[in-house]
């Protein structure tokens, strides 16, 4: 029986007095790739923020490896191995590429281990190696996304959450990004990928959830999703 990696029970949260997520429940099994899709403005990013601790949980519980994490501040969740790879803008704009990557390994104090991981990341993203001394403000969108993923890899966390890895990128770059994500399974086996549309996810995800207006309204395997194209048209207008 596969162990549970992440369990969400009746998660409710929002901003100020505005409720965005209503009673979400889901389970991510260890070693699986779970995709969450849904239209813009229906709580995808809110879910990511609630999981990583950037906004607080109003009601419900979140468990990582059967320990409750919903009361922990963001940095302690990272210590527990829940790594978020944020959307493009959450980088440190006035630092070099290498400094950004080193901050990804902030929790590692062993210098040799740190440089070993740095080499590994540079091995995956040769582009970042070329630009290691460049200020990240000057990077292109695709390079920033690579940096963001590479920075997440530095920590070699237990589970990774990718927030819209294809957002705002050219199709060719998206292909590259997804190749890398497929390769991620070797490093961090459990992935939660958030996307607006399912086309790319279908190839890598084991289970896909559909998030609409703060609620999961459907879940199933990618092949089941294909059968329900009618529903996709309704929700996503594809």
């Amino acid at each position: 029986m596969p162990t549970e990696s992440l369990r969400i029970e009746n998660l409710t949260t929002g901003y100020g007095r505005r409720k965005v997520l209503k009673n979400l429940s889901m389970v991510v099994e260890e070693g699986s790739v779970v995709g969450i899709i849904g239209p813009n403005g229906h709580g995808k990013s809110t879910l990511v923020k609630a999981l990583s601790g950037l906004i607080s949980t109003w009601e419900g519980r979140v468990f990582l490896k059967n320990t409750s994490i919903d009361n922990l501040p963001a940095h302690e969740r990272v210590e527990k191995g829940l790594i978020q790879i944020p959307q493009g803008d959450l980088i440190f704009p006035d630092m070099t590429v290498e400094e950004n990557l080193m901050l990804g390994g902030y929790l590692i104090f062993d210098k040799e281990e740190l440089s070993r991981r740095l080499e590994k990341v540079y091995g995956i993203f040769s582009r970042l190696l070329e630009r290691r001394k460049q200020i990240t403000r000057t990077l292109s969108g695709g390079e920033r996304r690579m940096l963001s993923i590479g920075r997440g890899l530095m920590s070699e966390g237990y589970m990774m959450i990718l927030d819209e890895p294809s957002l705002g990128l050219a199709p060719k770059i998206i292909d590259q990004v997804y190749e890398i994500i497929a390769g991620l399974r070797q490093i961090s086996p459990t992935l939660l990928v958030i996307e607006e549309n399912p086309t790319r996810l279908q190839n890598i995800a084991d289970i896909i959830y559909l998030l609409d207006d703060g609620e999961f309204i459907w879940s199933g395997t990618p092949s089941e999703l294909k059968k329900n194209e009618d529903m996709l048209n309704t929700y996503l207008g594809i």
Binding site: V78, I83, F92, P93, L103, Y106
Partner: peptide, 10 residues
């Protein structure tokens, strides 16, 4: 430079 991103780094 970015408090939220810093939190996500642990």
């Amino acid at each position: 430079q970015n408090p939220d991103a810093a939190k996500l780094m642990g």
